[in-house]
């Protein structure tokens, strides 16, 4: 997961992303790829507590050097999509777990990435909100976003269109799950 997300580089083997060998890139080049091509949804949400909701969503756009007006527009748009309109000025600790995870989804969406990586996105949520978040992710997928989701939960995995099973670092199954 960290390697796909360009957070880490492989110690052996190659990871080719859009024709680029990620293993050869510098720290800043990896940051650039994460910023432009990838969106992250973490198990622990990983929001910045000091920043309010809109600033959190805006943050990757700031690093992308998007002008202020457009940033706010896109951040609001992303928040609308995850159903958090009107919560822009709240701080993460004022939100429930499910809401926080939605903020992090909005943050991932804001940059319009090629791939969204979700690492156990429901792992810290109760089953009810977990289902809600999952529904949201599915919806986004329907809208045409590529989503890679990592999970231990077979019932969640069963909802994906393609399932790759990994055990002890080896791919043991790769099947399409459509229909």
């Amino acid at each position: 997961m960290n390697i796909i997300g360009c957070l880490d580089i492989p110690s052996s083997g190659n990871y080719i992303l859009d024709g680029i060998d990620v293993g050869t890139l510098s720290d800043d080049e990896l940051s650039y790829i994460r910023n432009y091509k990838l969106g992250f949804i973490f198990q622990q949400y990983n929001l910045i507590q000091k920043l309010n909701v809109i600033s959190n969503v805006e943050l990757p756009l700031i690093y992308k050097k998007v002008p202020k007006e457009e940033r706010i527009l896109r951040a609001k748009e992303a928040l609308l999509k995850v159903g958090l309109e009107g919560m822009e000025k709240r701080y993460p600790q004022q939100l429930s777990g499910g809401q926080q995870q939605r903020v992090s989804i909005a943050r991932a969406l804001a940059t319009k990435p090629s791939v969204i990586l979700a690492d156990e996105p429901t792992g810290a949520l109760d089953s009810h909100t977990g289902i809600e978040v999952l529904e949201l992710i599915k919806e986004l997928n329907e809208e045409g976003n590529t989503i890679i989701l990592v999970t231990h939960d077979n019932s969640i995995a069963a909802q994906a269109k393609r399932i790759i099973r990994i055990s002890d670092g080896k791919i043991i199954e790769d099947k399409n799950n459509e229909g």
């Binding site: 720290d27 910023n35 910045i48």
Partner: peptide, 16 residues
């Protein structure tokens, strides 16, 4: 440290 990690994960480079 964690905040810095998040910032870097979502695309902040060293200069930022």
């Amino acid at each position: 440290t964690r905040e810095i990690g998040i910032r870097k994960a979502i695309g902040a480079n060293k200069k930022d």
